[in-house]
Amino acid sequence: MLSYIIKRILVAIPLLLAMSLLTFIFMQMTPGNFFDALKLDPQISPETIARYEKLYHLDKPLLVQYLQWVRNLFKLEFGYSFFYHVPVSSLIAGRLANTFILALASLLFTWLVALPLGIWAAVRRNEWSDRILSLSSFIFLSIPSFFLAMILLYLASQGGLLPLGGIRSANFDELSLFGQWLDLLKHLLIPTVVISLASIAALQRIMRGNMLEVLRQQYILTARAKGLPEERVIYRHALRNAINPLITLFGYELSGLLGGAALTEIICSWPGLGSLMLTAVRAKDIYLVMSSMLMGGILLLIGNLIADILLAWSDPRIRYE
């Protein structure tokens, strides 16, 4: 299995590089870069600008600039952010952690809610509770995430209990450890719910479908014929099989979350990779954009890898090949 993982990573590396090259080209296609604004600024001397350009190799041909950036990647240097005046790596690390927290929270919330709901719906197939769940799932799948975020933020502003975005309150440093955790949870709630609702709707449907499929299988009949109590039949025999296909989904969902939560981050003012990317794009901060894209791609890749590993581990039919 290790060789499989290594192979996948090796295949992914040229893809990631190609992606970064593509981004680089796109960024260069934009007429004007960050320095044009500086050049217009009468307070900055031409010598300073020339010095900056030399520092960031902007005087060399494009390909050299790109290769220089790639070479620096191996030193874990991601270039310099012109907009923030700090190395990109220091920016990305913090934001990455925040995006990760949000993704993890959403993942947990989604799965802890969707799985029981799916099982519940399968066991009560076609009863009115199943139908209502089905309808609400459909609605939540269709609601635009940004719209939901706005509505929830509006309700929060009415209620006054939850903060309206960001990651920590103004008085964060004065709070006790418990208070700080609670503060984080309060800020986490709305973005997590927004991101999770659509996933819950989809996942619950899939879980229900899987359960129904599994409950039709022969081994369920055997389990009942052995005189096992119904709970054991459902929660051990059926569930264990119904979850299998979902385990790959877990990994893909992780990767999807890391990439797709960007819009919600922006609306809820959650300081993650997504909002960083937006600022970078607006400022035409080349290396920041490229590094964020690369990070996004890497996260996607890791998510997919985790999915494959989990699948191989959980299904003994594959594991013992």
């Binding site: 981004t23 797709g260 960007a262 997504g274 937006l278 794009v281 894209m293 791609g297 996607l300």
Partner: peptide
């Protein structure tokens, strides 16, 4: 492999 939103921003 590129997250959709990021790609959209980069292209934009």
């Amino acid at each position: 492999m590129i997250p959709g939103f990021y790609l959209m921003l980069a292209l934009r």
